[in-house]
Simulated assay, not measured.
Amino acid sequence: MANELGKIAVFGAGAIGCYVGGTLSAAGYTVLFFGRPRLQKVIEAHGLKLTDWRGRDQQLAPADVEYLTTYERMAEASLILVTVKSRHTEDAAKEIAKHATPGALVVSFQNGVRNADVLRKHLHSFQVLGGMVPFNVLTKEGGHFHCGTEGHLIVEKAPSFEEVWGSAFEDAALPVEHHPDIKGILWSKLMLNLNNATNALSGVPVRDQLLHPLYRKCMALCVSEALATTKAAGIRMRRAGKVMPWLIPVVLRLPNWLFMFVASKMIQIDAEARSSMWEDLHLRRPTEIDFLNGEIVTLAEQQGLKAPCNQKIVELVHEAEAKKEGSPRVAPEVLYKALLDART
C-alpha cells in the first residue's frame, strides 16, 4: 500500500518536518526530506531518532533517510508537506512551482494563519490544503527529535487527503482530524501559539512556565487582546480538540491549585518541552514572532485598535534576536510589569 501511494516530500525538514516525515518513513512510506545543509550533515552521521512523551522510540539509519538540499527530486512526490517557517513560505511556494509535478497535493503544516493562502497564490496547478500541528517537537543532539506534547494533526477536509493519505498517517501513529473550517482552527491555534514568545522569553520549559501564575497572566493579557481583536474583525474561531480559545484567559488567571485541576491536560506534557521560538533564539536564528503576536498587532491596527501587550512581546523578542544570546530569561515579575506598563 505504501508504494502504491507514491512518495512524500517534506519541504523545510526541521523539527516538525523531521518528526512527521520520520514517523511516516518508519511506517514504510518513501519520504524525501528537503532542508538545510547543517541538518543534512547531522542526519548523514546519525540518522533519525524519533521519540515522544508517551514512549515512541524509533530509529532510522542514515542510509534510510534521503535528506536533500536541492529540489530537483521534488518532482517525484505525490504529497508535499510544507513545514518551513512562515517567513519562508513564499520562497517555498516558488520552489515547489518550479520543481514539483503539477497536481501533487500540498499541505501546510505551519504556524500562523495565512500560509495556505500564500501557497495557493503561487501554486495554481496544485491542490493546497491548510493544516495544523498541535504538538511541540524539540530538536536534541544527534538527529534526535522529541515530541513533548499531545494532540492530533488537523487537515482541511478534502477527499484527496482523507481518502488517499489518511491511512498513511494512521500507520505512522499520527492521528489526523479533518475539518471543513481550517481558518477557524488556525486562529484558535494562534491563541495558544501566543505563548511561544512568553516561553522563549522565560527560558524555562513550557510546563514550568505554565505552573508560574505570573507567566500565565502574561499569556492571558496577550490572549485577551487577541480575542477582542478577532471579535472586532468578525473572525470566528473553532474549538480545536480540548481547547476552547475564549476560555483561555479565564483558565490562565486561576490560582495554581485550581489551574492544576482545571487544566490538568494542558500541563500533562513532557518536562523538557519548550516552544519552537525558544529553540530559534537558542540557535540564534530569526523567529516567527511577526506571524504570531505580530499578526494580532497588525489585525488590531486594521480594526483601529491597539494591542500593546502583544506589541511589547514582539519588541522584546526582536531585541533578543538582535542580541543573539539565546533566551533573555526574563523573570516573571519583570515580564508581567513590562506588559502592564505597555498598557498605560
Rank of each mutant, 00 (worst) to 15 (best):
N115V: 04
E325H: 13
F261I: 15
V314A: 00
K306Y: 14
L192N: 09
A45K: 12
A172Y: 04
A75D: 15
L211E: 12
K7C: 10
D208T: 14
S327D: 03
A77T: 10
S125W: 11
S202W: 06
A338D: 12
T51H: 00
A26T: 12
R343E: 13
L186R: 03
H122V: 12
G143I: 02
E325G: 14
N195F: 06
G103V: 06
E150R: 09
C218T: 13
M266S: 09
V128T: 09
F126E: 00
R87N: 15
P249L: 05
V155S: 11
S188K: 04
H179W: 10
P308H: 02
Y67T: 05
A300G: 08
R285L: 13
L192V: 09
K85G: 05
Y336W: 10
G55K: 11
K265W: 15
G166K: 08
F161A: 12
D208G: 15
R54P: 02
I154W: 04
A173C: 14
T83R: 08
H318G: 00
A240H: 02
E177H: 14
E333W: 12
F259K: 02
F109N: 03
E225G: 03
A220F: 06
T230N: 05
H152F: 15
C218A: 14
D171H: 12
P213I: 04
L254I: 09
D270W: 03
K98G: 07
